[in-house]
Amino acid sequence: MTQNSHSNFPWNHVIGFILSIALTLLSVWIALYTSLSITAIIWIIVSLAIIQAGIQLFMFMHIREGEGGAQVFTMVYSAIIGVIIVAGTIWVINSMMHSMSM
């Protein structure tokens, strides 16, 4: 971002804001007002949430400034760890519940 754009109208923020409102409404509509399968709904709304998170990181949080490389790496690595924790736990626990009920 150049020095110049600081004094201009905050386009980044306005576009990001509009996008996040729109994406929120879109996921509400997909989740509650369509007749897609549960699996499809989960995939779509989780993807929309990830896009929204990206909007916050890149359009609001200036992630590429300062130690941009290290910061992006940190967020990517933590996202991987987060997915491992969530998906791994669900997989492992469901497997154990399943074998217990047999």
Partner: peptide, 18 residues
Amino acid sequence: SFIVWVHHFFTMGADASV
């Protein structure tokens, strides 16, 4: 090291794939 944790409780009853 973040994807090996179940080896501490193999016998707790997860299925073969896990």
